[in-house]
Design a protein around this nucleic acid. Structure first.
Lengths: 252, 252
DNA sequence: CGTTGGTTTGATTAATGTCAACGCACGTGG
DNA sequence: CCACGTGCGTTGACATTAATCAAACCAACG
């Protein structure tokens, strides 16, 4: 069951009991599929539900007045869209599917009562939110650096995030993005993304086969990017907890 | 009393009772002064206290490996540093004073018990946090645009944020930043900041006298910047509530 | 096959960085 | 009261990064 990606992630923060895992599973009232490009939440909406990505990739983005899309965050399996959305009068951005993906809907009220009655789960959910915010800060900061470093940094991050929810094998993971989407994310043109990726491939740091990204030399990539995973907080710690949770994921 | 800046801000979210105001006031256990450049929280710390800016400006920033400082957020009076810091194992960035400023210290435990016992205050505090996150997203997005638009956007934002805590008169407000600090914020060189500000002055959109910023033509500035205050959520709504709260601030 | 979406290449231009120098205001010590 | 130092703002010349435009290429798919 794909709820395990979330459980897997939250257990990087604190171990959960079986009841707690069940509670999390019980939150999802409805599941829907979205095709690439389909909007899940639109800017200006005031959603009553919190969304949980179960499979595939989605993104937060804004459309600028001149029409370009700017991606501000990737949402991968186990990521919740906005635990506390209900506190804001309206969405200041949209969320849309990048690849085909499966999304769970959780009534906001459920989340709030869960938060009030289970302190550990509350903290785990808020922690995941804080990690999201930390990632945002890191993205802001990397913006000053040159395209090559920025891209390298992004690939390091997405490898670790994928690993944290059991979505890697060796050093490969799904990166279901076009170069245009990468451009919209980094604020660079497609052409520049293309040339920059060629540099990274040329240095034998990465290799990509279709939508599959292979990190040939993680240490080299980290060094090039000045990557320090501290901003991912416990998410980056690849302990045994993680392996255990991933195993549980497979067995369900 | 400078706690009123916080109250003033929170009341943009929901009206507060006198008890609630008192509760907020009671949170601050200790007040300290910091001079420009002094660190309030250092990267790697695990602070036990939540910090509340009472007077002056502070900033979140990271120091990059090559030594440059990158500012990710400004903290002005009424801003709390990190309501939920305690959930993270350590700070992934530092917070430091930009101008001389006065900072209140609030024990994390106090915050957590307040959050558990007063739902309205809890939501107001979390709302303020979410607005901070929305600002961060907006900063990320503006990064794609040209320097002139970016700067214009920043000035619009800081005018509104200052106004929301009663720190403006007409269209002027304190902007206690050097051009170098602006550069560290926008990821631009001092030289470029300088020339860009000259453009804005040349178009008669702004005027700056020392550390005082005057917005001559807010509409023009907004238009140039494609500024849409929606991302500030209720913070941008200049209603009567706001005026009332500011008045209360003066009378104490 | 032909179409389509995505990637790659080349040529040119625009935005911004870097370096180096100068100026101006303010404060401090003689 | 002056002389100097220091921090900040300003200017010019030149280098670099990335955008833009236009076209070719490639692979998947009906």
């Amino acid at each position: 069951m794909s709820i395990n990606r979330l459980i897997c992630k939250l257990e990087q923060f604190a171990p959960l009991s079986n009841e707690q895992r069940k509670k999390l599973g019980g939150l999802v009232r409805r599941v829907a599929d979205f095709g690439p490009g389909e909007e899940i939440i639109r800017q200006g909406d005031r959603p009553d539900d919190v969304h949980l990505v179960l499979e595939g990739w989605a993104a937060r983005y804004k459309i600028l007045p001149e029409g370009e899309r700017h991606i501000m965050a990737y949402l991968i399996p186990g990521d919740m869209c906005d635990v506390l959305v209900r506190l804001l009068p309206q969405m200041d951005h949209s969320i849309g599917a990048l690849s085909r993906c499966k999304v769970g809907f959780i009534p906001s009220k459920e989340i709030f009562s869960l938060i009030e009655e289970d302190r550990t789960l509350a903290r785990a959910l808020l922690w995941a939110d804080l990690v999201g915010e930390a990632i945002l800060r890191e993205w802001l900061v990397t913006r000053v650096r040159r395209a090559e470093k920025r891209l390298a940094h992004l690939f390091c991050e997405m490898l670790l995030r994928s690993k944290a929810v059991g979505l890697t094998d060796d050093d490969g993971f799904e990166l279901p993005l076009t170069q245009e989407e990468l451009g919209d994310t980094m604020g660079l043109s497609t052409v520049h993304i293309n040339r920059t990726m060629q540099e990274l491939r040329g240095k034998n740091l990465i290799a990509s086969k279709g939508k599959r990204m292979i990190i040939n030399d993680l240490d080299g990539l980290k060094k090039l990017a000045d990557f320090d995973g501290a901003y991912l907080h416990q998410l980056a710690d690849q302990g045994s907890r993680n392996a255990a949770a991933a195993a549980r994921g497979r067995s369900d």
